[in-house]
Design a protein around this nucleic acid. Structure first.
Lengths: 261, 261
DNA sequence: CGATGGGTTGATCCGTATCAACTGAAGTGG
DNA sequence: CCACTTCAGTTGATACGGATCAACCCATCG
């Protein structure tokens, strides 16, 4: 319904609805978790179906964020958690010297802003990489609901814990892998997440630049570019700018697992 | 009371009580959060004093873990969260090839095991680096208590969020810093945490090996060693094996902030 | 039309990994 | 109790991967 579905294995083009339909004051639509098509990925994930039904209170307003726009900035007062409904976001930190450090990419069903709970202010920036849509989840509201639902409480805890685990695995990349291993791991992770969302795992369109990938993986954009080229020459990938086709997933996996030297 | 206090700014030696006192079956002592000397650092942190008082249910059994012993392993069924009462732990992941990737060091008042909530199994290993003591916090028990206390609920959320933020900052290190910057950041972080716990921030004993520091910071043990030596030659540190004295904290900070090149 | 931004590719340099030798401390066993 | 091993740490020599600097292509845009 809201998640633009992929057309025959190819990631959809950014449609730019907001351009063709100049409706700015969209009535504050709300979405009920109980019949959201992302419910297996998103907040209610793991809650018993009966309880999701029961929790009719669980509905949130939807907001569009256009490509390049920020959803929140670091330091900004924490009010809401956001769930990606559609599109891709990047999370980033601003370094002391003003440069940007990309700390993650978020896709449909993933939550953003959990880092704001700690100190009442977001600890990172969130920027749309394409035209996107999010569910806005007011934190005090979800807290209040949680007091009445052990189930929701635990769902939130699980999601936060998942976030912690996710970060750990990234550390591994940065700590002990070389350029090829990092990019392979990145692509496989992306591929898997796309598959989970019903998109083709073997052919997709990158929403982020070489520089953003590099920042995320701890390497320079030139190295990212070279590594893409290397994979192409090895017959592992077909690369045309941001359009990627994985030709030999097994080889990609083995690059990633060859981390033995 | 339970936290062995530092003697005149120098970190205490590992005393190895367990050797001198062969008492194995210690009665299951419990500690009440309300009068624990770590309460400002640990779980009840940020809860209103009145509520901490009120929560007399908040008490947990204490366990000793000897140097080198594991508190839990990755994959092991998740039951408890642990709070460090005394000593230092390392968290680690086991890589596909069997090597160890250190993901953090935990000190008094810090929680361990939060990564287990996500999937019902710990996602990391936790190993004592010296003789230690922990509070065992059964997860179902704290969940149950949380349903009756919004305050406790939020305390747990805050602590998990803090964990997420902490990881982010490490990523920065690994992504965009060189060896000197990494070690400087590591030492300053350590120094600050020791200070918070009433120990000297300028002179301390490292509980971890060069290899463990290297794994954590994404560099080889030789490079760690060389960087220590470099800092010593620059007059920033005095290094004798694991005994560290920070001679010029300002210089150390400026190394860390010089990340502009 | 030139300007701009993303991407690719080449040449060179530097930082860190790697390999290796050595020291000192601690533990082990005959 | 002393040779022996083992382990943590230091330091040197060398190799290599990725950063850096630079030139260039191409698409988009004002």
């Amino acid at each position: 319904m809201s998640l633009a579905h992929p057309s025959a294995g190819t990631a959809s083009q950014p449609l730019n609805f907001s351009k063709t339909l100049p409706i700015k004051a969209i009535p504050p639509l709300t979405t009920h978790c109980s019949n959201c098509n992302l419910r297996d990925l998103c907040l209610p994930c793991g809650m018993k179906p009966a309880d999701v039904d029961g929790l009719d209170d669980l509905h949130f307003s939807r907001t569009k964020v256009k490509a390049g726009q920020a959803l929140y900035h670091e330091g900004q007062a924490f009010r809401n958690i956001y769930a990606v409904r559609m599109g891709t976001f990047k999370s980033s930190l601003t370094l002391a010297d003003g440069r940007e450090q990309v700390s993650g990419f978020r896709m449909a069903g993933e939550l953003m802003g959990l880092d704001g709970i700690a100190n009442g202010a977001y600890a990172s920036n969130s920027t749309a990489l394409e035209d996107t849509e999010v569910c806005t989840i007011p934190y005090d509201q979800i807290s209040a609901l949680a007091t009445n639902s052990t189930d929701l409480q635990q769902a939130v805890s699980r999601l936060m814990s998942r976030e912690i685990v996710r970060e750990h695995s990234l550390m591994m990349l940065l700590g002990s892998m070389n350029a090829e291993e990092r990019l392979a791991a990145f692509l496989l992770n992306l591929s898997q997440r796309l598959k989970l969302r019903g998109y083709s795992p073997s052919e997709f369109h990158l929403r982020m630049s070489r520089a953003e990938i590099g920042s995320y993986l701890g390497m320079k954009l030139e190295t990212v570019s070279r590594t893409f080229s290397a994979f192409q020459q090895q017959g592992i990938l077909e690369v045309d700018k941001r359009h990627i086709r994985i030709l030999d997933a097994a080889a990609l996996t083995s690059v990633f697992e060859a981390r033995v030297h």
